[in-house]
């Protein structure tokens, strides 16, 4: 029931069974002696409908990886394939809300860019704001909200993209534990309902164990995939359950090992 099995390297899978495939991806920022090797030869397959959590020490290249998958940056080497060629929706590490738009305007913008009709947009925006429990705040400006509320607006806005692949960069980092638990339930529900594929970056190992079908550990500088666990805890899960705690402990041990290897 509660087993954590190292998935062992990267399995070759037929393309129709992968939603996202990274093959030998490297990313170097800058040139010469000042160059930063953010990612080195990362290969990763994510199956359709899979919820994959990416963990790793700060600065190991998690955000870099997501922006490569979102096609906002080009890899220095390697290839990235996204099934259907669709651009994945990315929820940034910072809320990145547009200050000149209201909360509802922010959430509606991806749909406006897709030329969704005004009436349909209003309906969808209201629904998305309900999802993140902000239905009363549609007319506010982003700067009038707290940090955690902004993060939730950003989540609603990313969901408004209606993409089959969702990339989330520490989406709940700025939230208090209670709100975070509730949003864990929400994101899990949306993921299941829409059959999304999710690549979810987090510092919080428990969160990774709570949400992920898989947990992928990246090493630091250069970032490489060093471990890949399958989380076989049935859903619904609770973040404070002993099974989740046990998995989190395992991942944490391995993460510590990684960080120590760097310290020496």
């Amino acid at each position: 029931m509660t087993s954590v099995l190292p998935a062992g390297g990267v399995a070759e899978q037929p393309t129709d069974r992968t939603a996202v495939r990274l093959s030998g991806v490297s990313k170097v920022y800058g040139r010469g002696p000042a160059a930063v090797h953010a990612l080195d030869n990362v290969s990763l397959d994510v199956a359709p409908g899979e919820f994959v959590c990416l963990v790793g020490a700060s600065g190991c290249g998690k955000s870099t990886l997501l922006s490569l998958v979102a096609d906002l940056d080009r890899p220095t080497a390697g290839t990235i394939e996204v099934a259907g060629g669709a651009r994945p929706g990315l929820m940034f590490q910072e809320p990145a809300l547009f200050p000149w738009l209201t909360v509802a305007g922010n959430v509606g913008l991806p749909m406006r860019l897709r030329k969704v009709s005004r009436a349909e947009r209003a309906e969808r925006v209201a629904e998305l704001l309900r999802t993140v429990h902000l239905d009363e705040f549609g007319r506010r400006r982003p700067h009038q909200l707290s940090g955690g509320m902004r993060q939730r607006v950003a989540m609603a806005r990313t969901l408004a993209l209606d993409t089959p692949v969702l990339l989330m960069d520490e989406p709940f980092g700025a939230l208090d534990a209670m709100t975070r638990d509730i949003l864990h339930d929400e994101i899990e529900r949306i993921w299941q309902q829409r059959g999304l594929t999710v690549l979810f970056v987090t510092h919080n190992v428990r969160e990774a164990a709570r949400l992920g079908d898989r947990i992928v550990l990246l090493s630091s500088r250069p970032g490489r995939v060093v471990a890949d666990w399958r989380v076989d805890v049935p859903r619904p899960r609770r973040i404070d359950s002993p099974e989740i705690a046990a998995i989190a402990a395992q991942v944490t041990d391995r993460l510590r090992e990684e960080v120590r290897r760097h310290g020496s």
Binding site: L72, F98, L101, L109, R114
Partner: peptide, 27 residues
């Protein structure tokens, strides 16, 4: 740059990026 990246992720390109992100941000 973060707002530009957000706009691009939402599918804004060229003129629409100007219309929806660059113009209001530089107003």
């Amino acid at each position: 740059p973060l707002l530009l990246r957000a706009g691009r992720n939402f599918g804004a390109r060229g003129l629409s990026l100007y219309r929806y992100v660059v113009a209001p941000a530089s107003l």
